[in-house]
Amino acid sequence: MIPTEQLDHTGPLWRWTGGANSGTWHFLTIDGAAGEALSGTAVMRKLEGTARGFGSLKVRARIGETHFATSVFPSKSDGGWLLPVKASVRRAEGLAEGDEVEVSLEY
């Protein structure tokens, strides 16, 4: 079993619009030292044969008082990792595009 790691990160919430269904998604980019820590874990899981599709990592996230399970995805264009922040989390925490968001991740 892989031990659980934890990290904290702060960054701006941003919106992506597009795709086949013209959907709108909100993300937090996990970069810098936090992104490097996630990348190291992804490499280890690949070597262990436990890597997930698209290079994603399952995480447990906390923003404010809201806890949720999701996955982070490597960002080829920006570097770092993308954490999707769904509408229910944004509503619960009163978040909007451009807000600085503090997140704690367990992975």
Results as ranks from 00 to 15, higher is better:
residue 41 T to R: 01
residue 42 A to W: 00
residue 42 A to S: 14
residue 43 V to A: 07
residue 43 V to P: 03
residue 43 V to I: 11
residue 43 V to E: 06
residue 44 M to R: 10
residue 44 M to A: 12
residue 45 R to P: 08
residue 45 R to I: 00
residue 45 R to V: 00
residue 46 K to Q: 09
residue 46 K to I: 02
residue 46 K to T: 06
residue 47 L to H: 06
residue 48 E to V: 07
residue 49 G to R: 10
residue 49 G to S: 10
residue 50 T to C: 08
residue 50 T to Q: 01
residue 51 A to E: 15
residue 51 A to R: 11
residue 51 A to S: 09
residue 51 A to G: 13
residue 52 R to D: 12
residue 52 R to K: 09
residue 53 G to S: 14
residue 53 G to N: 11
residue 53 G to C: 03
residue 54 F to H: 13
residue 54 F to E: 15
residue 54 F to S: 15
residue 54 F to W: 13
residue 55 G to S: 14
residue 55 G to V: 14
residue 55 G to Y: 06
residue 55 G to R: 08
residue 56 S to N: 13
residue 56 S to A: 13
residue 56 S to H: 03
residue 56 S to G: 05
residue 57 L to C: 14
residue 57 L to G: 10
residue 58 K to M: 09
residue 59 V to M: 00
residue 59 V to P: 00
residue 59 V to D: 00
residue 59 V to R: 00
residue 60 R to P: 01
residue 60 R to N: 11
residue 61 A to Q: 05
residue 61 A to Y: 11
residue 61 A to G: 13
residue 61 A to N: 07
residue 62 R to L: 05
residue 63 I to R: 01
residue 64 G to V: 09
residue 64 G to L: 07
residue 64 G to N: 13
residue 66 T to C: 06
residue 66 T to A: 06
residue 66 T to K: 04
residue 67 H to W: 08
residue 68 F to K: 04
residue 68 F to H: 10
residue 69 A to E: 14
residue 69 A to K: 14
residue 69 A to I: 13
residue 71 S to M: 11
residue 72 V to A: 08
residue 72 V to M: 06
residue 73 F to H: 07
residue 75 S to L: 05
